[in-house]
Amino acid sequence: MQTPPSPTFPSIQADNLEGKKLRFPQDFAGERNLVFVAFQRNQQREIDTWMPLTKEMMKNHPTLRTYEFPVIGKVMGMMRGFINNGMRRGIPDPGTRAITITIYSDKGAFMKPLGLKDQRKIYAFIVTPKGEVLWRTEGPRTESGEKSLREFLDKPSKVSA
C-alpha cells in the first residue's frame, strides 16, 4: 500500500493587499508560519476568532509569522481589482493588508496539495518556507484547537529555512 504524500503548501504567485508581488511558499517570512485559508467571504468571522491568540503566539514565538489566504475562484480573477479594492477598504491596517494574500485560482488545484476536501471550512496550518505543513486544524478557534497549537509551538523547532 502506498503512503499518501504529506500535505504541502502549493506554489503560488499572488499580490498582498498592499500590492506587493509574492511567491509562496518561499516568501513566508517566518521559520514557522501560521497560515489561515478561507474559501467564502463569511468565513472571515471564523478566522477572526483566532486573532487574539495569534497576536499572543507571535509575541511568545519570535520566528512565527501569520498570513491569511482568501481563496477565490479563478473565474473571479477578472474582478480582481474590484475585489481587492473592496478588501483594502475593509482592512484599514496596513500590517493586516500586508499579510492578506488573495488567491485567484482553481480552488481544487489549491486544495489538493494541502489535502483539503471541504470549502465550507476554514483551515489553519503551520507551514515552513519550504512549504512543509507541520500542523493543521480546521474551523474557528476552539479549546482543543488552541491547546493543539500551543503544544505544537511550545515544542522546540527543528525547522531549517
Rank of each mutant, 00 (worst) to 15 (best):
R32M: 08
G86V: 02
K20H: 12
L34V: 06
P5R: 11
G115D: 11
I72V: 05
R41M: 02
Q13S: 13
P7Q: 14
V127F: 01
A124C: 06
D48E: 14
T128M: 07
R45C: 01
F24R: 00
G19H: 02
L153H: 13
P113T: 06
P92I: 06
P25T: 04
H61I: 11
Y67D: 03
M78Y: 11
Y123I: 00
P70A: 01
P5V: 07
S160E: 15
D15L: 13
R136T: 14
A29I: 00
R45D: 06
V71M: 00
F24T: 00
K55Q: 04
T96D: 15
D48N: 11
D27V: 04
E132S: 15
K59W: 13
S144E: 14
F9N: 04
T66H: 14
G108E: 11
M111E: 06
G115Y: 07
M1W: 09
I83T: 00
I12V: 15
R141D: 06
D154N: 15
G77A: 04
P92T: 09
R141K: 15
T142D: 12
Y67L: 06
P94W: 01
R45Y: 08
Y67W: 09
I83R: 00
R97H: 05
M111D: 03
K55E: 08
K117I: 09
T54K: 09
R150T: 07
P4Y: 08
K147C: 10
L149R: 00
L22M: 06
E68F: 15
N42Q: 06
R136I: 08
A109S: 15
G95K: 09
I47Y: 05
S144K: 08
W50P: 10
L114Q: 10
A14G: 07
E46M: 06
E138M: 05
E18S: 12
T8N: 10
N60L: 04
L34G: 06
R45N: 14
K55A: 12
V35M: 04
F24W: 00
E151C: 00
M78G: 13
D15W: 02
E151M: 01
Q40E: 12
K55N: 05
K147W: 12
F110W: 05
S157M: 14
R80M: 11
S105N: 13
G77D: 10
I12R: 07
S6L: 14
G115C: 08
E138K: 02
I122P: 02
P5D: 12
R65P: 04
Q40H: 09
A98Q: 02
P140C: 14
G145L: 12
S6Q: 15
I126Y: 04
G108C: 15
W135D: 09
P52S: 05
